[in-house]
Design a binder for these strands. Structure first.
Lengths: 268, 268
DNA sequence: TAGTGGTCTAGACCACGTC
DNA sequence: ACGTGGTCTAGACCACTAC
């Protein structure tokens, strides 16, 4: 485990203790000095470890008060379903588009192959068991002259493995999805889950950013319009200093006016 | 300028020099030792300043290579024209709803008053000049028993000042908007801009989080369904460890983009 | 191997919340 | 006023990149 620096190791240990329930949400952690003595490290080093845990949402430290465990309703990679903000909007494939005349270029080669989908959350969204071998497409996208702004990792449901394998080794963006829609699953329906977090070391390297720069994580799930089953899951990781997402919200055609006392046939 | 600590002051100075163009995007900054000598501070302190600038997206430091200026272009991630589809689903106000039986409570008092809208970006979105006095509504929202998860600041277009002033001093969520829709602007159309960033000190205090925890910033613009002019702008700041946003995407045959592209004059 | 950023220590002092 | 986290220094060493 320790391939990291001292403060990262210590942070890992404290993180595990929190997750094990040693200190419940709201409880106060030992003081920096206590941790320093316990781990045989300098207090400043403990401070760095705590700062790391703060970026991950585990703890909240306040001068003069102490360090307390957050009510981590949605711990990193462990979202809870009941604390969610719901929006609905229209965009199409949310693959970032070339605005005006600009053209996004792939940085490095796209990797189209199969891999084991070990992430439990993504596996669940795709409707497969964790560890299943799944067609995967990985690419890093951005302007040709500058740093990339996005990592995209797509996992296609294994029932489309043959279909996807028949496509060009270096397909255009969305090519796999077009094929699937053409094969009788039109229209694919989409859901996206957005959140902010810090990048992993690997993600930071791919995006050419510091591990200190937050990223926007977008998990997109595509569902067949015909059999209602998941078709693909894509995780985007975008650099927060380069990209914002724009959403257009529409009102349901069948929706009534929001106030109940009046009836008025809604036109648009 | 600030009453901040040494490394924050130094970060401010370097930030200003970057924005002044002293080092163009891609250029390399002086070494830590050089900065240390120039500012008469310890190298470790300079390192903290650089780490801060990294979280803000200004620079990118790599061991063995040096510190370079980022290409800090904020690019909206727009829907792709040929793939955009129409949307038929309702959204309602994207004010977070209590899923299941949970009820969000206001932390502290909501502040309903008027204030000067100095933020150039928000002023532009609302269609007023920066510095205009505008009805404002500020609230901090979250479960009753735990920490809040969201700050919401709404700015209502001044043409509705009288209408809004007539509402109860402590209105229900969305009350102002209902009134405006009722006054002949139904249905309001919405756009949202999402991005990840680090919180300000004040935001962190309101959300009871560390300044090290990234937040999701959501700027929402409501436009009158009848005269097509902006009605309100709301900025949400949500704690990234508590909230994810969920979006349902629908197809639309017409590649519409009703919102004018905002060129990003640099508001970071 | 040289150069540069990252981490660590020990000790001191500062800033903030609480009593 | 006290206690706790936050910052700063000086110097040393580690980690990574480039040559």
């Amino acid at each position: 485990m320790p391939v990291h620096s001292r403060y990262q190791d210590i942070a890992s240990k404290i993180r595990e203790r929190i997750e094990a329930g040693e200190w419940p949400p709201g409880a106060r952690l030992p003081r920096l000095d206590d941790f320093a003595e316990e781990y045989g490290a300098n207090r400043d080093t403990i401070g760095r470890a705590i700062a790391l845990l703060e970026t991950e949402g585990y703890v909240w430290a306040v001068q003069g008060r102490g360090i307390s465990v957050r009510y981590g309703t949605m711990r990193p990679r462990r979202p809870r379903g009941d604390l969610v903000k719901r929006n609905e909007h229209a965009t199409g494939y949310s693959f970032p588009s070339a605005s005006s005349k600009e053209v996004w270029t792939r940085h490095g080669k796209a990797d189209n192959s199969s891999a084991l989908l070990t992430d439990a959350r993504l596996a669940k969204l795709l409707g497969v068991d964790p560890g299943t071998e799944v067609p995967r497409r990985l690419r890093v996208t951005g302007p040709a002259s500058e740093a990339p702004f996005q990592i995209g990792i797509s996992w296609i449901h294994p029932r489309f493995a043959d279909l996807v394998a028949s496509v060009d080794a270096n397909p255009a963006a969305g090519e796999w999805l077009y094929r699937i829609e053409k094969a009788g699953h039109w229209p694919i329906k989409w859901m996206e889950i957005h959140r902010a977090r810090m990048p992993s070391k690997e993600e930071a390297a791919l995006l050419e950013i510091s591990t200190n720069l937050p990223v926007l994580e977008i998990v997109r799930v595509g569902t067949s319009g015909t059999d209602e089953k998941p078709v693909e899951v894509t995780e985007y990781v975008v650099a927060s200093d380069r990209v914002e997402t724009v959403h257009i919200l529409h009102r349901d055609e069948t929706a009534q006016q929001p106030w109940p006392d009046e009836e008025q046939a809604g036109d648009r």
